[in-house]
Design a protein around this nucleic acid. Structure first.
Lengths: 235, 235
DNA sequence: ACAAACATACCGACGGTCGGTATTGATATG
DNA sequence: CATATCAATACCGACCGTCGGTATGTTTGT
């Protein structure tokens, strides 16, 4: 019965479907969301869905690509900014990813959080993380190369180091899993500490690999862990 | 205790189903393997399957647990061996995991390789890796603690460091993905180098986090990368 | 006899396909 | 300038095979 909207360009429809899918993934998780669910929320028939996407997987690819492109948009400033020392450029890189992280809460961060709840969704999580790696690594490898030239970073292969470091930072997600199943306030405190300890250790691993002073790499804002746990508890 | 038809104890049936499932996962990948496939290969009815397992997920859990228990069996020697220096104990830990890795080829390593082929199977991969982490971390954390006591490792929190380090080592799997799609012999050489570079960088990250000399941590045997690529090419 | 160990028929949900219809914009024509 | 034409595009909804899972009946060992 749904009538066709004549002002809709194909791209708009695709984005509309993306939006609905993302919303559903956030609220009920990836694996629990069927194409029928997405269809119904979007007010679109199955035929329409498969007109715009070859498969469910292809749709998810498009959604993740769109997400990664948003990161690229903000992150490309790392190389575009002029007149920075190698270490300052590295710190800018950290800051942009930190800020993005803070902004993305709850928008896109909830994508990850929701998928953390179900073991089945770890594949989705993995794909999301790899999209992020693909977006960040090319720029970050150049940041490392510049720092190696200046003698700031004590490694010899930025292209190999870049994905390793980004994935060390992304190990974060395994620790967040423990944040579920919190009951008492003491649990809450313990989990906050565990997340903070883990973040510190990740930063330490990166600092020492690069040969820069302990504590240089701050992966999240100071209140990240407590905010995360508080947010989680509120729902 | 209770002996049933064909001399089959319940545990034997379970292991038989595990074996068939593992074989199928290796040959055609996890997501492409249905319960019906497993039933048919095992020569068992659906009723029998669901008599022994609550769900497909439960069966997979059991299979992964069995795999992790095999690791535990060999790995527990790390703490049982007496009279070792902290660094030698750490090296023993590395050696046992390296040897196990070499032995496990093609047996259980193929589990990972097969799941690397399909993007859809990354969830399965993730679960496998987390089982390994759960098996290794308790012992490894103690190894680290002993080394910290002796002033060999320059960190202060073995319980946080242990899973981080194990997962750095497991990052390996992301690099292996690039080994597919090899055509020319030059490709082959380049991929071998890429795998070796990555392994070296992972070892370096661990060495420097722990504060031990560069090159101490050898994650695989020397011919691992070339053997892997050669094996892959043979099929 | 009785429970464990199976077997079989069946179910609903899922991703995906298919034949068909409505809408559109470009172009040809009166 | 208005309109008929028409292929491409956007969309619909019934239908299909497969999957994980269940309900219920049957065999087998003790």
């Amino acid at each position: 019965m749904t009538r066709r909207r004549k002002n809709f360009r194909p791209e708009d429809r695709r984005n509309q479907i993306f939006d609905c899918a993302q919303q559903l993934f956030q609220t009920k998780g990836y694996s629990r969301t069927s194409i029928n669910d997405i269809m119904n929320i979007a007010g679109v028939s199955k035929g329409a869905f498969y007109h715009h996407f070859d498969s469910k997987e292809a749709m998810v690819d498009g959604l993740l690509r769109r997400y990664a492109d948003q990161i690229r948009g903000a992150y490309d400033a790392v190389l575009e900014t002029q007149g920075l020392s190698a270490l300052d450029r590295y710190k800018l890189h950290l800051q942009i990813l930190r800020d993005r992280q803070a902004l993305a809460e709850p928008q896109s961060m909830m994508l990850i959080i929701a998928s953390l709840l179900n073991e089945e969704d770890s594949g989705f999580q993995d794909r999301l993380m790899e999209e992020i790696v693909a977006a960040v690594v090319p720029v970050f490898a150049e940041v490392l190369r510049l720092g190696i030239e200046d003698g700031v970073f004590l490694i010899d292969d930025p292209v190999t180091a870049a994905p390793l470091i980004v994935r060390i930072a992304n190990q974060h997600r395994y620790v967040l899993k423990t944040a579920f199943g919190i009951k008492s306030a003491e649990d809450q405190k313990a989990v906050v500490k565990k997340i903070e300890d883990s973040l510190k250790m990740q930063g330490l691993a990166i600092d020492r690999l690069l040969g820069i002073p302990d504590g240089t790499t701050q992966l999240r804002h100071v209140n990240y862990a407590s905010d995360f746990v508080a947010n989680l508890h509120a729902k």
